[in-house]
Simulated scan of single mutants.
Amino acid sequence: MKLQVTEEIELMVFLLSKLTHHSRTNIKSLLRDGQIHVDGRSVTQFNHRLAAGQTVEISPKKSVKPAQRPTKGIRILFEDAYLIIVEKEAGLLSIATDKGDEPTAYRMLSEHVKTQDPKNKIFIVHRLDRDTSGVMVFAKSEDIKNKLQSTWGPDTKERTYIALVEGKPNPPQGTIRSYLQESKATIVYSSKNPERGQLAITHYETLQSNAHFSLLKVELETGRKNQIRVHMQDLGHSVVGDKKYGSSQNPLHRLGLHAWVLGLTHPVTNNYLRYESKIPAKFLGVFGK
């Protein structure tokens, strides 16, 4: 991230005015870690005087080398001072429910960051259903979590899923648009009335089909709870294994939904991050591959 200086000003005051999602403590950490450069030179003093015409650059902290998975069910794809992007296996909860004390992605990553510093914390940005596998992102501070969530649409350039569904959609590609709301029984359903739910837009494209199933590329324009599952039911081609939303077949013995690609703009460095998770072999196995 490069910032242009237009007037004489103290570095800390300048950074606080530009990095609105950062606290004074966050900015002091950037200075301490040598991530602030003025005209290409690292500066660590918060009271350094800037002159008009200078360029302030925030460089990413050297990424932590992706570690072995903290435990079974999760693998770190990217980690720096602000984010962790992981690949979650099907069967693992994103975050704990009120019903038990089983392992979760959140708990594993919380323990992971505390091995680096006991004061470290982790914040969940979005969730994947227990039986949905694939890529998800966590924040290392509440400021970064809020920044990511507030720009989840504009700055998240790619949210692409693979869905194995029953039957063969006709037309083979299209867009589903509705307003989603949740019942007291935690069932999400569609409405055409904008006053009765949140707008949800899903784009789909058939990649391959046989007599019984279709493999779809699904792109989210919005990110609502159970959005893909509800929209596939609306399409008349439920996600396999999704009994809650109309499926009668379960060839995978799990939900046929995989978070394939996540691409987003880093909230601090403005670098584009894109991570892709391999399509599970089981998904392709129903087509004899």
Results as ranks from 00 to 15, higher is better:
131 D>G: 06
131 D>I: 08
131 D>R: 12
132 T>P: 06
132 T>N: 07
132 T>F: 05
133 S>M: 02
133 S>H: 03
134 G>I: 00
134 G>V: 00
134 G>T: 00
134 G>M: 01
135 V>I: 14
136 M>N: 09
137 V>N: 03
137 V>C: 09
137 V>E: 03
138 F>R: 10
138 F>K: 13
139 A>M: 10
139 A>F: 08
140 K>V: 14
140 K>Q: 12
141 S>W: 11
141 S>E: 12
142 E>H: 15
142 E>L: 15
142 E>K: 15
143 D>W: 10
144 I>A: 11
144 I>D: 08
144 I>N: 06
145 K>G: 02
145 K>R: 13
145 K>V: 05
146 N>E: 15
147 K>P: 03
147 K>L: 14
147 K>D: 13
147 K>S: 15
147 K>G: 06
148 L>E: 05
148 L>P: 04
148 L>D: 04
149 Q>E: 14
149 Q>F: 10
149 Q>L: 14
149 Q>M: 13
150 S>V: 09
150 S>K: 14
155 D>Y: 03
156 T>G: 03
156 T>C: 09
156 T>L: 05
156 T>P: 01
157 K>V: 11
157 K>I: 10
158 E>T: 11
158 E>I: 15
158 E>Q: 13
159 R>F: 03
159 R>M: 06
160 T>L: 11
160 T>E: 09
161 Y>M: 08
161 Y>D: 03
162 I>M: 09
162 I>W: 04
162 I>V: 09
163 A>S: 05
163 A>L: 01
163 A>W: 00
164 L>R: 05
164 L>Q: 03
164 L>N: 03
166 E>M: 04
166 E>G: 04
166 E>S: 06
167 G>Q: 01
167 G>F: 01
167 G>H: 00
168 K>I: 12
169 P>M: 02
170 N>C: 04
170 N>G: 04
171 P>W: 00
172 P>K: 07
172 P>W: 04
172 P>Q: 09
173 Q>E: 13
174 G>Y: 05
175 T>P: 05
176 I>N: 04
176 I>V: 12
176 I>M: 10
176 I>G: 05
176 I>S: 06
177 R>M: 14
177 R>A: 13
178 S>C: 14
178 S>T: 10
179 Y>C: 07
179 Y>W: 14
179 Y>G: 06
179 Y>Q: 11
180 L>S: 08
180 L>Q: 05
180 L>N: 06
181 Q>I: 09
181 Q>L: 12
181 Q>H: 15
